[in-house]
Structures are given as C-alpha cells and as structure tokens.
Design a protein around this nucleic acid. Structure first.
Length: 556
RNA sequence: AGGGCUGUAGCCAAGCGGUAAGGCAUCUGGUUUUGAUCCAGUGUACCGCAGGUUCGAAUCCUGCCAGCCCUGCCA
C-alpha cells in the first residue's frame, strides 16, 4: 500500500497477509465480504467483523460486499435482512454494488454440484440422519463408507435431478461429497452438500426444494464474487479444509487467485452474551424489551442507548484482531463512547432525583443566563438557561453536615456554586415524615455569576440544577450490566444470572431547551453522564443513559 | 499417539533472531464553574513451563502443561 494514502491503523496478522499477497501480486485489489445469515439482529460482535471487512476494503482501496448467506430458509426472515442493511449503513459503511445473496447463485451451485458428481466426487446418500451419524465414526475412530458411495455417476446424476424435482421427501436423501471417511477432520468425512427442504425462501420463493449447505455455498459464493480474503471466526478453522477442497475440485475456481479463508477470534464481552441463540432467547422469554432493548449488545440496542457509529468503530480498532480466545472488558467499550461523546455532545443540565432548593434572598422573577454548549469548544456556541428563586438540585448533592473536608457538594452553612450560575450557601433543610429532605433553603451571592467572589474566598464545589418554574419533567432510564457474572454464557442457565437491577428508572427534570431534543442525539447532562432521547417513545420525555461520566471519586 | 488452533502486565494487543510498542484500567501530581475533560508522570511483564540451537531467543527446535474448537441433513 502506498504510504501517504493510508490511515494509520494498528497492524494485525490479516493485514500482514494482505500486504504479502499484494506484494507478491497474488491479488491486485483487496475484495472482502461481510456475510451474515439473516436469522437475527446484528450485535457488537458482528460490528467487529463489519469494521474489519469494510475497514480493510477502505484502507486498501478495495471493495467489500454485503452478502446474505441465506441457504437455510427455515431460519431466515426478511425482517432480519432489513435490519442488517440498516445497521451496516448506520455504522457508516457502504457495500460494493448491489446487495448479494447466496440464493442468487442457486443455479450455479446446482451446476457445480453436478460437476462434482460427474467427476465422481459426490453422491446421493440414502442413509437417514441417525445412520449417517453412526457411519461418521467418532473423534478417535474412523467412520465407514456409506453403501451409496459406489453408485454410478449416471445414477447419481439422475438421483440428484430427482432431488431437485421434489421426488424425495425431506430427510430421505442428501447429496454428499466423496472425500474421506477416515479423515481426522470430521467435516471431511463425506460432508453433506445439499439437503431436501420444502420451505418457501424469502428470496427465491418456492423455486427450490433442495438447499446447499454452508460449506458448499460459502466458498463458491466467495469465488463467484472474486473475494480475495474470506474472513471468518475461529470455529471455522477445520472447515477451511473443505472450503479449499470444494474450490480446488471445481474447474472454474482451482486457480492461484481464488479466495482463501482466514480466521480471527470472535468478540467476547464481559457481562453479556453474544450468541444469536441466547439473544433470541432473551427476546422470546421477554427478559428484555426486544432486540433493540438498550441493554442488549445488538447494534440496534446500542443505537437506542446512544452509542455512536464512530464510537463502535473506534472500539473495534482498540480491541484489534487476533486469534486469541479472549474476553474483552466493558471498560474499553465505555472508554470509546466517552471519548467520542465528550467531543461532540452538547452540555445540558438535568436533575435525575430532584429536591427543591429555595434561594431566600432572590426576590425577582427568573432570569435568563447564558451557558456554554461545550466548555472546551467555544465554536459550539452558547445556550440560554433559566435561574430563579426555586430550582431543583439532585438529592445526592446535599447533606446537612459535610462528612469531611473533601466534600464538594452542598451542606448547611457551606458554599457551593450552582453550575453556570451563582454561589449559594445552605441555610436550613426541611424533611418529610420519613426523614428525607424535601426542601433546602439557601442564600446566594449575586456578584458571583461568571466570576469568583470578589473577596477572594474559594468555592470548590459545583453542583448542577434546573430552574423549577419552567423545568420539563422527564424520565431517565439508567442501565447497568445485563448479567451479574463476567461470562454468563458459561452458566448452566444463563437467564438465572440476569442482573435484576439492569434498569433503574428515575423521574426528574431537564432544561426547557431540551423540549424538542432529537432521539438518539447525544447530550451530556453535566456531572451525570451521556444521555439521549429514547427512539421508541418520541412523544414522551424519556432519556436513556448511554454511559455515566468517568468516576474517580465514588469508589472512595 | 484423534485432529485443528491459542498462550506477551488486571484486560485488549504489537513484536517474526539483536536484547519487550500502544490502548484500556490503576496510581500520583497539575489545570478546571462538570469530583468530567485536558496535561504530566506512574508498571521489575521470569514473553505458559522445561530443555536445546545460537555470540545473542518472546521470536528457531524438542518435550510438557493449560484453554478453545471439531462427531448438524445449522451457519
């Protein structure tokens, strides 16, 4: 690659392979693909693969296809193809040309299967699934040949044609590759290439009643699309032998520039699950609101929660690509969002757990004050906030007697600054029957807006507030990890280890300026965290907390 | 004697025979009208273990140990 055109990315073993392939002119242009099966929603693990495949294509000025690996109509649905397209685009990537479907190649797969039969490399097998399993042998013992293994080419051709024409029932027979029943790779013990399924396919309707298996379809799809580097996760390492076998035995593809498969480790994130099966189960069992529940590791859930495409791409870059079976800390993801949001999120003030604060020496009507939208970025401008005799502050920001000299919040007879406004001093507090503070009374120093007290006294603490008369009531949804253990997938019953406090709802107030806040748009509620308006309840004032601010204090 | 992979600081991850990058986390200072940000500093990593080759090994060889994956007509 030419130096000054490329982005400075962390190196990884796949980039090393590509660099070699380009240097040796094995390929002239990089062509990758992201090949999801449309049988569920995309999650952060898919995002890792998307960023890898599309990122490689971008950096090497190559191409990346979006291909739906839709060879099993029984599990697939258009709902999923639509959401997958949306998620890929939302992440900021554009596929090369039209969307591809493995099902586009059904005619070609059929022809290539026929080629294998003609070469004596595939046969129709009538063993049922139990028999087939017995014949396969075990990890330590070789399998034995199917009685159908010696059927003549002519007979096999006729049989396969009958399969295609619907003359066999589901499960009655399959097309198998004739490889080696004693191979140490289980996937090479005469693997199934085609099975009979009387299913309506979301793309091809009822045209077919036989469908190719992944191992047969995937390598050929890659080859048809001229994919150069076929990247997948570690569990397909053994399957690579079959990938190579199929392409090497087909005249169209047994060439040096055919695609090759390379495997990297999938993403494991602490305190969540990543398998589609488990995610499906959470949705089906109504343990979450849906695929787009903000606690889900799905792209749509994270989008609703307030994660940005940039933060997810940055996360993918931070964790890198390797073959190590690893467990990534949530902290890396959180650091990535905070980094992005800190730069772009307008600041605002919201009180999540309000108590009333009355400023006894403030007699006039509420006044308008100007506050920076971003304290480190003047170009973002200023916003109007209200200040008046009655404001809301957070319950956690007041205590009658400061516990120690390091306490930076409001206490009786102690001064603190109301952010973007004046310095106040606690006078007295009122409590309800349960002993909870209801109202705090204070006085303010009118000469402290935008400046420190003239007499030089230092006021260290700053707390946020919302003026009461015009405050907009709002609901705040605070999210915590979905599970209580680092690796819930290891649990016998992962649902038993769900965090009962993964969602906490608070009712408080936001600034009037947020009346028409946009769903999914990030705000920093100062001292509280990053929030965005919920995209599923736009008529209400509901804010999802994306992530709290980094907290180096409360740990004590 | 099944096979395929992987083992570098708490986590992620460079390194590919010349004497251990970087990020996250941690901790310490400084700045600060967010206990945030920002800035500066902060890690004896017996490079899974044990041998061997070499002037020199995380890097090459041998043996061992640990973890993950493979017996769907799923992908």
């Amino acid at each position: 690659m030419s130096n000054n055109e490329t982005v400075d990315r962390p190196v990884n073993f796949i980039r090393n392979i590509i660099n070699d392939d380009l240097a040796n002119h094995k390929h002239e242009q990089v062509h990758t693909r992201f090949p999801p099966e449309p049988n569920g929603y995309l999650h952060i693990g898919h995002a890792k693969s998307i960023c890898l495949n599309f990122g490689l294509a971008e950096d090497y000025k190559g191409l990346c296809n979006l291909r739906f690996d839709d060879t099993n109509p029984a599990k697939e649905d258009m709902e999923y193809v639509d959401s997958i397209k949306q998620d890929v685009q939302w992440l900021g990537f554009q596929w090369a040309g039209d969307i591809c479907y493995s099902s586009n190649y059904f005619d070609q797969f059929y022809a290539y299967a026929t080629e294998l039969i003609e070469k004596g490399l595939a046969y129709v097998c009538f063993l049922n699934s139990e028999e087939s399993r017995e014949y396969r042998g075990s990890l330590k013992e070789p399998g034995k040949d199917s009685p159908c293994r010696d059927t003549s080419v002519e007979e096999n051709l006729a049989l396969f044609s009958k399969m295609k024409n619907g003359e066999f029932k589901e499960g009655e027979c399959v097309l198998r590759a004739k490889i080696d029943m004693a191979s140490s790779f289980m996937c090479m013990r005469d693997p199934t290439l085609y099975r009979v399924r009387f299913e309506t396919h979301h793309q091809t309707g009822d045209k077919w009643c036989i469908y190719p298996m992944y191992d047969f379809a995937h390598c050929i799809s890659d080859a048809i699309e001229h994919i150069t580097h076929s990247l997948c996760t570690l569990e397909f390492q053994d399957n690579r032998r079959l990938y190579d076998w199929v392409l090497d035995h087909l005249d169209d593809f047994s060439k040096p520039d055919r695609p090759h498969q390379y495997e990297f480790s999938r993403l494991n994130l602490e305190y969540t699950v990543m398998s589609k099966r488990k995610l499906h189960q959470l949705v089906d069992d109504k343990l979450v609101e849906g695929w787009n529940d903000p606690r889900m590791p799905t792209i749509s859930g994270m989008r609703r929660r307030g994660y940005t495409p940039a933060s997810i791409r940055d996360f993918a870059e931070r964790i890198g690509i390797s073959k190590v079976d690893s467990m990534t800390e949530m902290g890396i993801l959180e650091a990535a969002v905070r980094d992005d949001l800190n730069k772009v999120a307008p600041r605002s003030m919201a009180v999540l757990d309000p108590i009333k604060l009355v400023i006894e020496n403030y007699e006039s009507e509420p006044e308008v004050l100007m506050a920076p939208i971003h304290p480190q970025n003047e170009e973002m401008g200023k916003r109007e906030i209200l200040f008046g005799r009655e404001v809301y502050i957070d319950r956690a920001d007041f205590t009658e007697v400061a516990p120690n000299g390091k306490f930076m919040r409001l206490a009786l007879d102690k001064e603190v600054r109301l952010r973007n406004a004046y310095v106040i001093k606690g006078v007295r507090a009122e409590y309800d029957a349960d002993g909870n503070v209801t109202t705090v009374y204070c006085t303010y120093d009118p000469d402290t807006h935008g400046k420190n007290p003239a007499d030089g006294r230092k006021v260290k603490g700053v707390i946020h507030f919302v003026e009461a008369s015009k405050a907009i009531p709002a609901e705040f949804r605070l999210y915590d990890r979905l599970f209580t253990v680092e690796n819930p997938a290891k649990e016998d019953d992962f649902e038993s280890v769900i965090n009962p406090e993964s969602l906490t709802i608070k009712n408080g107030f936001v600034e009037p300026g947020l009346l028409n806040s946009e769903p999914e748009k990030a705000y920093q509620f100062e001292r509280e965290g990053y929030f965005c308006r919920d995209n599923q309840s736009v008529d209400k004032q509901i804010y999802n907390r994306t992530v709290a601010l980094r907290d180096t204090w409360s740990a004590k």
